[in-house]
Amino acid sequence: MTDRRPRAAGGEVSIGQDVLVARGLTREFSGFVAVDGVDLSVRKESIHALIGPNGAGKTTCFNLLTRFLEPTRGSIVYDGRDITRMAAADVARLGMVRSFQISAVFPNMTALENVRIALQRGRGDSFDFWRSDRVLSRYNDRALALLDEVGLGAFAGTAAWALPYGRKRALEIATTLALEPQMLLLDEPMAGMAQEDIERISQLIRRIARGRTILMVEHNLSVVSSLSDTITVLARGKVLAEGDYDAISRDERVIEAYIGAAHA
C-alpha cells in the first residue's frame, strides 16, 4: 500500500500488493507429489511467469490456483479472499480467469458468438430459454470492438474451428478480456506458435497487462525474459528460485535444472 498510481481505466489501485497468494500448496496423485509445498505471491499489476523443465508441476500448479484441481494441502488467497475450496466457476466470477494450454474456443460457434458468451455471463439472462437469442445482438458492438482489439475484426462471422491456430489464441484472449478480469492466468500462451504469431501475442499480452495482473506458464524463454517482471522457477514440484530474469538466469541451480538442461 505504499506507491499509488492512476490506472489506465481511471480508477486507482495500489501497487506492490499481492493479489494472489498461495501457501504450502501441495497436490499428491496416488503417492506421486506433483506440487510440493509451493509458496507463491503474485504482485498486483505485474506479469509473473512460472517456468521450469517438463514435469516440474507448472500446469498442476495452475490447475490448483484456478480451482480446476483440489489441493491436497495448502491455501490459496485471491484478493484477500480464501478460495482454497471455492468452485472453479466462482473463482472466475471473482475476476480471475484462466486460459488453457490447448486453445480454448467454442469451435462450433462464430468468433462473435464466442466473445458474446463471455459478455452474456453475469448480465442475468443466461438462463432465459424462452427468449430469442436475437436479444444477444445488443452485445454485438462490444464483441466486435474486442475482436478488433486482437485483430480479428474481419473474422467475426467465421466459425472458430476454421480459424488458424494463432487466431484461435487471439480469439481466446478476446473472450477472456470480455469478462474484464482483474487477473489472467495464461497456460503456455505461445505453445505451438509460429514466430510471427509469438510477436503478435506478446504485444497483445503487454497491452492487456496494463491495469491487470498476469500469471503465465511459458516455455519460450525469450518471451518470458521480455514480458515478465517476476519469474518463479519450479522443479520437481518445488520452488527453485524466484526473481527477475537477470537474477534467475544467473542462478546456478536454475541453470543446472532448467536452462542448462535445455541447452545441453
Partner: peptide, 30 residues
C-alpha cells in the same frame, strides 16, 4: 426457442468446451 435462446447459446458453449465455459464463470452443472 430453447435452442435459439441466450440459454441455448450457453448450452452450446458447454457442449463445445466445458472447461472453458467453467473458466468463464459458468456453473456448467446447473
Amino acid at each position: 426457442r430453447i435452442i435459439h435462446s441466450p440459454f441455448g447459446q450457453v448450452l452450446k458453449a458447454i457442449r463445445d468446451n466445458e472447461p472453458r465455459a467453467v473458466s468463464l464463470g459458468y456453473r456448467a452443472n446447473r
